[in-house]
Amino acid sequence: MISNGCWLDAATREKIVAVVDVKSGFAVHAIAGNRQAYQPIAIGGQTAGDPFTLVAHYRRRGIRSLYIADLDSIVLGQPQIELLERLIRAHSDLDEILIDIGLPELETVASWLEFVQKNRNVVVIVASECAPRAASLQHFKGSLDFSQVALGMDYRQGNFLGGDDSESDWMNHAQQLRIERVVALDVAAVGTSRGPSIAGTCSRIRRHLPDVKLYSGGGIRDDSDVKLLLDAGCDHCLVATALLDP
């Protein structure tokens, strides 16, 4: 693990989106996509797994954007609505909060989506790994404007996870809907501190979607890894492990 975030200069910090994975109310450390084995994160002797402590830790680093993955919703279809609302309310001054809740039944999140509409810094991700086809990008249509919807392009060891449709199908559909943000992640790389393996994929997405805001991460250790992804066409990098030491 990288020590104490000393690699974060001002320019790099502006490009970082700090990651919060929440499972059963706890902030957990994601490693290699093995979600059953994720364990609560302890920061500086504080209560392990408190997501508010984790976000406060990130904010002390000067981070202004968050990516929150609701693993209960992604895996079980059971969104942690109350926790998500509390996190958004507590950090409504942040530049951006990206939230991945998979594709829950709309009736279970209807009131929450109304809440999201009123918080324009919140963006909800449609994750390809949870979807049967690219048309699922319209899952929140009628509940959210597409300016508050992002495409999550998910991979495992380089293989695209997108149901029955190809990577190109998803990107074409995103272009048709004028989706403004794309988040590309290889779940096998997250939390490994081995360096990002997705730079080539990011370059391919950038060529296909030249106008989107592109986010990626997984395995980032320091500013050189951030630069690698920025050079590949990313606008922002998702980071957790390299920020965790007190």
Rank of each mutant, 00 (worst) to 15 (best):
R120M: 06
K141D: 12
D50M: 04
L8G: 03
D145N: 13
E167Q: 13
L229A: 11
S143K: 05
I2Q: 07
L185V: 10
V122R: 00
D9Q: 05
V109Q: 00
V22T: 14
E96P: 00
I68M: 04
V226W: 11
Y38E: 01
A232G: 12
A110I: 10
A42E: 15
G219C: 10
H139E: 02
V55N: 03
P51E: 04
V226F: 14
Q117S: 06
L103E: 03
T192D: 11
Y58A: 06
A90T: 04
R221V: 08
R194S: 10
I43N: 10
T53L: 03
V55I: 14
V226A: 08
A10N: 06
V20D: 01
A11F: 04
L230C: 05
H91A: 02
S92F: 01
K227A: 15
G102S: 03
L144Y: 03
P132F: 13
V239S: 11
V123K: 06
R86I: 01
L209D: 04
L113Y: 00
T53Q: 12
Q39P: 01
M1T: 10
G45E: 04
L214E: 10
N121H: 15
L177T: 09
H208Q: 15
E105L: 10
G102D: 01
R181C: 01
P246T: 12
H208D: 09
I198L: 09
G5F: 09
A69T: 13
C237P: 05
S168N: 08
R194Y: 04
G195N: 08
E114N: 12
N121L: 04
S73E: 06
M1E: 11
D93T: 05
S73G: 14
V75T: 12
F140E: 02
L54E: 06
E96H: 00
V122W: 00
L161D: 06
T201D: 07
E107D: 14
L113G: 07
S136C: 14
E14P: 01
D225I: 04
T47I: 11
V182K: 06
A30V: 11
I179F: 02
H29L: 13
R204W: 04
Q46N: 11
